[in-house]
Structure formats: C-alpha cells, structure tokens
Design a protein around this nucleic acid. Sequence first.
DNA 1: AGATTCTAATAACCTATGTTATAAAACCTT
DNA 2: AAGGTTTTATAACATAGGTTATTAGAATCT
Lengths: 251, 251
Amino acid sequence: MSEKDSCIVRHFCHYSQLGADEKELLMSLEKGPVSLSAHEVLWEEGDLAGELCTISAGWAYSYRNIDDGSRQVLDVFLPGDVIGLREFAFTRRLSGVVMLTDGVVCRFPHRNIVDIFERSTRLTSIFFSISGRQQMMLTERLVNLGRRNAFEKTAHMVFELYCRLKRIDPDLGLSFELPLSQQIFADALGLSSVHVSRTFTELREENLLIRDRNRITILDEKRLESVAGFSEGYLEESLQSVLPEADLPGA
Amino acid sequence: MSEKDSCIVRHFCHYSQLGADEKELLMSLEKGPVSLSAHEVLWEEGDLAGELCTISAGWAYSYRNIDDGSRQVLDVFLPGDVIGLREFAFTRRLSGVVMLTDGVVCRFPHRNIVDIFERSTRLTSIFFSISGRQQMMLTERLVNLGRRNAFEKTAHMVFELYCRLKRIDPDLGLSFELPLSQQIFADALGLSSVHVSRTFTELREENLLIRDRNRITILDEKRLESVAGFSEGYLEESLQSVLPEADLPGA
DNA sequence: AGATTCTAATAACCTATGTTATAAAACCTT
DNA sequence: AAGGTTTTATAACATAGGTTATTAGAATCT
C-alpha cells in the first residue's frame, strides 16, 4: 500500500508533518481499504467495539435510536474523518454508523492504537488532538441544539459542513453536493422533517441558500455565517501550540 | 505532596491500577492544589489555553455565551473530573469555566501531557479514555437536547448527576445536595428557567423526585431512570478492554 | 415504460415551551 | 433586624415547532 492510499496518513498530515518512519508505522497498523455502498452499516449500537475507522471516500453518519422510535444523529463524517474514536475504552458501541454514499473505509484495531502510544509521541499527540477536536464539534452542536432556533440551527449545520468540505477541497465553490435528506437534518438538529422543509423554504425566501435535492447553493455566504452564529475556531486542526518544532527526519 | 493529596492520581486510579513510578510521574507534573470560592472563574472564553485542571473538591461548570445574551452550559464537573481536556490542541479557550461551590483545583500544563506520552503508555491510555468518556457524555447530552421533552430532559440530568455522584461516594443515599440553580438547569437543557420550575413541580407531582433549594430527594429511583430513558453504559470508566493485564511493579 | 418507493412541499391544526409579570421565599449584607 | 438581592413559583398569554394529511415530483426497480 502506497502512502497515497493510506486513509489515516493523509488525515494525520493535516495536523502535523510526519516523518517517513511515522508514516510507515501508521500504514503498517492499518487494515486495507474496503469499499462500501450507500446505506451499508459499519456497525450498530450494542456491537462489540474493537476498532476505529478512517473514511477515505464517501460520507457516513452516526446515530442513536431512542425508545420512542425517533433517533438522534450525532456526527456526519466526511472523507478523511476518524470514526469510532470515542469508543476506544468502551466494550460496546453506543451509536450506530451508516454510509450516506458509496465510499471507502479502513479499519484500525484498538490494540494498534496502544502500539502507537508506545512508539510515537507525535502520532499520539495527533490522536489526542483529533479526539479533542471531536469534542469541540460536539460542544458546538450542543450550543446549536440548546440555544438556537430552527432557522439558525439549519444555517449553522449547512455552514459547518461547507467549511469542513472546503478544508478537504479548497477549490469548493458556493454550490456543492450535500447528500443528506431532510430527515437526516431533522434527526441531527432535533427537529421534525416537516419543519426542516419549512426552514429550507424560508432560507431560500431570505436569499441565503437554495437546497435542491442534494445540492446546496449558498447565495449570501457572509449573511449565512452571521445568522448561523458561526465562528470557525472550533474546527482548528493544528498542533503548533503543543509540538512547536517539526523536527522531521525524512519528510 | 503525598499521593492522597494528588487530584489526578486519585482520578486516574478509577481507570486502571497504577504503579508507584506512574503515580510519581503524575505527581511530579501537577502543580499544587489551589482553593477557589464559589463563582470564581477558572478561565473565560478567549483566554489562552495552556493547561488543564483536575478538580479535587467542589463543583464547577463550563459554558458558552451566545450573542443574543443567552448561554449554553456544556459540562458540570464533579470532584475528580478533568477540566479543559478538549482544548489540548487549541490555542484559546472556547468555553468559560466557573466554580459552582467552594473547591480545590490542580493545574496541569499541556506541555506536561506530552511528557506523559513519552514516558508512560498506561497513563497515555488513561488520558485517552478520559477524553473518549467525555465525548460519550457529550453525545448523551446531544440526545437529551435533541430528542427528549422537558420532563425527560430534567429527569435525565438529575439521574446522570446522581449516578456520577454515587461513583464518587458509594454511600450516597437517595437524598443529596445538588448546588445547581434552576437557571443552570435551564442553560444546560436548552430550556427557560420558568419552564424548569414548572418541570420540577411536575416531577414532584408525579412522585418522582423533590427538589428543595439545593437538595434533591429521589422518590422513585426505578421510574425516574425509566422516564429519563437513562442507561448507564456511557459512564463506563475502565481500561480492561485495552490494557488487560495489570502488570504492576509496586502497587 | 409502468409500478413502486422515497423525498419534499404545503396546509390545517395542536401543544410544548417561551415570555412577561408578579409575588413570595430564601439568602446575603450591614 | 432591616434592606437588598437572588431564587423560585405561578399565572396569562404568545409562538415556534410538532403532527397528520395530501399531493407531487424524483429516484429506483422490473
């Protein structure tokens, strides 16, 4: 497997430059990539948790089913994201994960994370940062669910996804594919799908954005960011503050 | 500083037994304990983030202020908890932290965490587990905010705190002090304080619990757990799955 | 191409929760 | 003990968002 094919190496490079030996270590621990189709299940609530995944192509989401038949979407995962990190010390999955589109994932056994801890401080720091960043995204979602109305919530979720996509593809324009049904928006935002529909209509009438099937077109980026109460800080991904000198042997 | 005085050593022991050398390493990196009074600020949104804290006595909470004047409470911290872990790789604080009661905290510089990564795999795993467990608590809160009504939300929050307190003090009875105003409940649950008041009245009328000032008395533990949709799994704190053999030199 | 299923838009109606106001306790300060 | 502040309870009223139903357009299947 070449470095280009390794999901995890590419993702870790966002955080800090890696030496050749670190790249090799990561690649040696990762299992080969697996293709999955839309709607395929990575795992379900209650399954034994023994590995995490990196998603190198396609989208996925995690969710919890509620007793009353509803569900809460917890994360939306984009290419490059790490899935299942929070279950590292847990015996069983507490949320299910399903593909939103066709895609490719690599599985990475929990035991191998401990090998990383033993062999590379830099990689350990990166794992730790990713976990912290995921916490930050969850707290931002908490604010979104707790203290914003449907209009602001929806604007915020679209804008967050827009920002995250732009980090993956800096050439991304104001119009892009977003393969999330209104039901997924509803389950992520704690709303009904009917009200999500109303809200997208309202966002269009306000000339903020158009959602047509799975395509989003942002009409007024600045104003959208502002009504969403969005500030990008929580998406930061760098280790400069912690590992200032990049003492790299082989780049 | 003796082992008994170290906040962090005591907390880490919940996760895995520690060898004498590991305890010593932790203690050497931690700064001395500091006493704080109720309402004192540990830090505010926007402050530079250079250390985390362990809270060895007293309660605290973290929050984000929203532009419209409201705020979202993100965590409630109890004795033994680690505060500020998610900001490890961030330059600045994205949430403020304030004491709810008088208490004692120990500060622990971020740089020292990297020393831990270099010197103890077991301690690294524990840090990682704590971060994962905090993520789990945040996802549970997400479900609470997104998919439960005020009655269930409030029941859930009380029950979670009850469970966490019981882990600290197994002798805790069904009646205990809970130094959270209804405004704090409101800001944590995404409700208005008026509705929190109504909800506690309703919980009393349903014979589930009584809240009198800062004292909670649980009247029907089983039914409270059930209406809250509570399941304790997300509070798990053990490393058995990851570090099975406790190969301890000096216990 | 026709049948079927999924997804979305919109309307009519309902309810949980927000808002504002008031007053009583509890608590804090002097 | 008096006076101020914070916390809580409750009522009256307003509204954001939920629920159910209907219809239509896309997407998928045969």
